[in-house]
Design a protein around this nucleic acid. Structure first.
Length: 960
RNA sequence: GGGCGUAUAGCUCAGUGGUAGAGCACUGUAUUGACAUUGCAGGGGUCGGAAGUUCAACUCUUCCUACGCCCA
């Protein structure tokens, strides 16, 4: 097959991808091979490929292709995540556009709509991953809502429940009033926004006064609306200003609620007045203070509904005018916050803030401006409300124990290691994980509630479901069994899906005509956090809980690659669930990479409009170039700044390889037939064999350490700077006009060059799969595709003399070129040279490689012996231990002063170096205390530079 | 407030206790057979600052400064 003169990535990418996928190239049958397994961080089913995915998946593909080439049974599990909140939002938004809404449907109806959406437009990203060249096992594509996955989720939930590691609890959650669901701590983002700090007077009750005579306590808050549900005022136990009033009461303005003054260390005497209002139902700190003050969670007052509008508190003291107001100003309409402040001000309870203008005048404001750390929901984008509800919690602290130990003792290696500290810091301070979500799309919680049985009578507690009887099991059949055991045969058991809201009271229950001998069980309407299911990814994707062969062979996985941003969300939770369900760490190694940033270092975001579309880059430069860029920039522990020039550079690299292959083809260099290096006698051929080995060793070492940058640079440098720049130039004389194409040198060189090019294609394949596969086949008929070829075997014997000889020719060539350039001699000029006292290497190389010396160094003839008298330039050649001086007469070619200047410059450099080394060597401390190798090296370097200086001085003398 | 990370050539980044590297950019130069998406040659860095350890520090330690991230 002949190659076009220009390389066009687009033309080959789709073709090869299709071929690989259809021919099973991504997962060849290798039943007896050692397993190598990676699971892909499942992207959201709603997602589309962004630059971060491109990085993450490129790295994984490099590893998986590398291991596949090394003969392993390489499995890359791929799939998508059902992304509860995100997906439900997408479908609801689409409904909105049609003036439709979720609640127009039954739960089942809506979920079916989501499935429809998923079938039609979900998984865009999986097609985009193909464009990148990712070699995942698509035949086993997974989805976290697959039937077998659901089985795994249910089993895990039930097991955890039975082990007491999942429980229902009433406490404050992070409530998203836009999405109307609880979310976990990790889904909350703290942002600092400008806000206000208001100061209020809370009048003391019963005529009590402070020691200074005041009849009120001053409190301050950034959230005045919560005062409607205040239940205490706290002061520090050691704060003498308030010691006399601890245990006394204040009467809250507006509600008139009588609340105690309590002593609690949470109150900071240094902050404001030292007294703080306590709203246990709406603030995490206050919740704790409230509990310490003896208020049960169930008794804490709540003044906001699910949409964060004011509702009546249990004591009924909130005036009607406030009911229904939103928590704060929204869409230009004042809310409860503004109303409370206005009312307090009107009633004289507001203490104004006095600010000074630049001119020193005092001005009164209602509040002090302040920067406020405020929690936002990462999906909904609105301020999170701490809200008192019943939710399911996972005992994360218990589950974290084994993962902590795994990382501590090296069972799991985190790369780069610097992340370990962050990991420990989080895991050791982990909070209970709220896993229930008030959504319809997701894994339904396998818990059913029924009336509790007290002394033979059934009773429902409508205000607090957690006190009702709960049955947790994987199926209704099991629940029925449990229920029968609990209620006895006297009751008929029925499952009913009617929403809880339909049965608010016992009276409703009776009114529905439910006979007294019937028990109705209702499943918890909530679903599980999506991360609860993705935590099972390393084994549920392999068939767990069934004991499949696949699971046996591929769990534990070998490596996980993820962005550090999901270390806690996903990686840590996989560790927990791996240990809990499988009794093992899910993988021995975790590689964390950084973010891809915009060229200016800013975080890419849609709102900033600075996102770079990886597909656009692929269109422009080819997938291979983008991949290579990702790999070359991926040094451990640093974010990657986008640099399109560099992507372009790697496109150029691909073109270079393309053209090198064209050159090979034009000289009859084709596919090699052996994995082992061919037998070679010519120095250049031995040299390139040695260089292939060195490159392979370097790449293997880099890959073992997951140094993607080092591996990419090694193959890049070898291909361009060694193979193209030197080897192909060195062998050109063999194929030159007049040379015998059937003679040994040409035959051997064709074999070696073909072999070396093949090794390049194999070693480059993990990084640039498309162009390498194309060239692999262009080079000749092959028994197999490159994707399933064999990684180079770096063992081959090459003679040191041969490689030294080529190093010597290269050094000579470089030095001659450099000298010519400095002296203004045309680079093409062929010059005669004399070698007065050649080394052994020089003697043999001048004889055997005269063609290369003529062609590259452009020296001819090269005469062994003393140069004739007269001006000359001098260059040296080094290779291994050999060091030779070439004298090149300049008569009539160049002005002598230029050569003098050049030599003087070189002499000064050598003398400076020699002097510095001499100084070091004359330091007794250095000679005695430094490592012997270092001393030896210094001696060698000194000898070299001293000799060089001598040679240069002699050359200068000759010039006169 | 706690923790972590980064600071090396104009730019983006590697790097090692023993005379500083790559890519891009820049300068000079080369053009009829692999390749101008190129070749050849070259300029450019007191390795953020200060102190310490060491025969020797860009590298190790401490402190400082700047920037970034995470947690509270």
């Amino acid at each position: 097959m002949t190659l076009d003169t220009t390389f066009d990535p687009a033309a080959i990418e789709a073709r090869w991808y299709k071929h690989w996928e259809e021919s099973g190239g991504f997962r060849p049958e290798r039943p007896d091979a050692e397993a190598f397994t990676i699971v892909n961080p499942p992207p959201n089913v709603t997602g589309s490929l962004h630059i971060g995915h491109a990085l993450d998946n490129t790295l994984q593909d490099i590893v998986i292709r590398y291991e596949r080439l090394r003969g392993k049974d390489a499995l890359w599990v791929v799939g998508t995540d059902h992304a509860g909140i995100a997906t439900q939002m997408v479908v609801e938004r689409q409904m909105e556009e049609r003036q439709d809404k979720r609640t127009n449907y039954s739960r089942e109806g809506f979920v079916e709509k989501v499935w429809e959406w998923k079938r039609e437009s979900g998984g865009t990203i999986t097609h985009q991953l193909r464009r990148l060249g990712c070699s995942m096992d698509w035949s086993r594509e997974q989805f976290t809502m697959d039937e077998h996955f659901t089985k795994a989720v249910l089993k895990t939930f039930v097991d955890l429940y039975n082990d007491g590691l999942i429980y229902r609890d009433k406490r404050l959650v992070n409530w998203d009033p836009k999405l109307k669901t609880a979310i976990s701590d990790l889904e909350v983002e703290q942002q600092t926004i400008p806000g206000h700090f208001w100061h209020f007077k809370y009048p003391l009750a019963d005529g009590v006064t402070l020691d200074d005579g005041r009849d009120y306590i001053e409190v301050a808050t950034t959230r005045p609306e919560t005062m409607l549900a205040d239940m205490a005022v706290a002061v520090h136990p050691s704060d003498e200003r308030y010691a006399s009033v601890v245990g006394k009461h204040v009467v809250l303005p507006i509600t008139g609620r009588r609340i105690p003054i309590v002593a609690d260390e949470h109150a900071d005497p240094e902050l404001g007045s030292g007294a703080v209002k306590i709203t246990p139902g709406h603030d995490f700190n206050d919740f704790e203070v409230g509990k310490r003050a003896g208020i049960a969670a169930g008794d804490m007052l709540n003044v906001l509904d699910g949409e964060a509008n004011v509702c009546q508190t249990a004591d009924g003291l909130v005036p009607d005018e406030f009911i229904g107001l939103h928590r704060f100003k929204r869409d230009g309409v004042d809310g409860a916050r503004e109303a409370v402040v206005a009312r307090l001000k009107a009633d004289g309870f507001l203490i104004p803030h006095i600010a000074k203008t630049k001119k020193g005048e005092e001005v009164e404001h209602d509040a002090e401006p302040r920067q406020i750390a405020t929690p936002f929901g990462d999906r909904g984008g609105v301020v999170i409300e701490p809200w008192l509800t019943d939710q399911w919690y996972v005992d994360a602290e218990k589950l974290a124990e084994k993962p902590i130990k795994d990382v501590r003792d090296g069972t799991i290696e985190i790369v780069p290691k610097s992340w370990e500290k962050t990991f420990f810091n989080w895991m050791e301070n982990i909070q209970p994980w709220c896993v229930s979500r008030q959504l319809w799309w997701g894994h339904r919680i396998p818990a059913w509630f029924g009336p509790s049985k007290e002394g033979g009578n059934l009773s429902w507690n409508m205000s607090d479901y957690s006190t009702n009887k709960v049955f947790v099991a994987e199926s209704e059949a099991e629940v029925r069994e449990q229920a029968r055991a609990y209620y006895g045969d006297k009751y008929e058991i029925e499952f009913n899906e009617a929403p809880f809201a339909a049965l608010q009271t016992v009276a409703d229950y009776v009114n529905e005509g439910i006979p007294p001998n019937k028990v109705i069980l209702r499943q918890d309407p909530d679903v599980l956090d999506t991360w609860f299911s993705s935590a099972l990814w390393p084994f549920a994707t392999l068939g767990w809980p069934d004991k499949t062969d696949l699971l046996g062979k591929h769990f534990p996985n070998n490596l996980l690659i993820s962005g550090f941003d999901i270390l806690f969300f996903w990686d840590a939770r996989m560790m927990m669930m791996g240990q809990y369900n499988m009794g093992e760490a899910p993988w021995p190694r975790l590689y964390l990479h950084g973010l891809v940033r915009a060229a200016d270092g800013a975080k890419m975001s849609k709102s900033k409009g600075n996102v770079v579309d990886p597909l656009g880059l692929i269109d422009q430069y080819g997938a291979d170039a983008l991949r290579f860029f990702m790999a070359a920039m991926e040094s451990q522990g640093r974010d990657i700044k986008m640099d399109e020039k560099r992507v372009e550079g790697y496109r150029n690299f691909a073109t270079k390889l393309w053209n090198a292959t064209r050159f090979c083809q034009s000289n009859g260099i084709g596919a090699s037939t052996t994995l082992k290096a061919p037998i070679a006698r010519l120095a250049a051929n031995q040299w390139i064999i040695g260089e292939v080995q060195a490159a392979c060793v370097e790449i293997d070492a880099a890959m073992a350490d997951l140094r993607f940058d080092a591996a990419a640079n090694a193959i890049y440098q070898f291909t361009w700077s060694k193979f193209c720049d030197w080897y192909l130039e060195l062998i050109k004389p063999v194929f030159a006009e007049g040379a015998d194409p059937d003679a040994m040198p040409a035959k051997e060189t064709r074999e070696v060059a073909g072999w070396a090019l093949d090794q390049i294609l194999v070693m480059l394949h993990p990084f640039m799969p498309f162009i390498t596969e194309e060239l692999w086949h262009a080079q000749g008929d092959r028994g197999y595709d490159l994707i399933t070829a064999k990684w180079p075997d770096p063992r081959a014997k090459v003679s040191k003399d041969a490689t030294d000889a080529i190093d010597w020719v290269i050094d000579l060539t470089t030095n001659v070129r450099s000298a010519k350039n400095e002296l203004g001699i045309p680079p093409g000029a062929k010059l005669a040279a004399f070698v007065p006292s050649p080394s052994d290497l020089a003697s043999s190389t001048i004889e055997r490689s005269s063609a290369a010396i003529e062609r590259l160094a452009r020296l001819t003839p090269v005469t062994v012996g003393k140069a004739p008298a007269g001006p000359a330039m001098q260059v040296t050649a080094q290779g291994g231990p050999a060091s030779d001086v070439f004298v090149i007469p300049l008569e009539g070619i160049i002005d002598i002063d230029a050569e003098k200047t050049r030599l003087e410059k070189a002499l000064a450099a050598s003398q400076k170096e020699a002097k510095s080394l001499e100084g070091r060597l004359s330091n007794a401390n250095f000679v005695e205390r430094a490592k012997p190798e270092a001393v030896e090296k210094a001696r060698e370097d000194f000898a070299y530079h001293a000799g060089e200086a001598e040679r240069l001085e002699a050359a200068l003398k000759r010039l006169g």
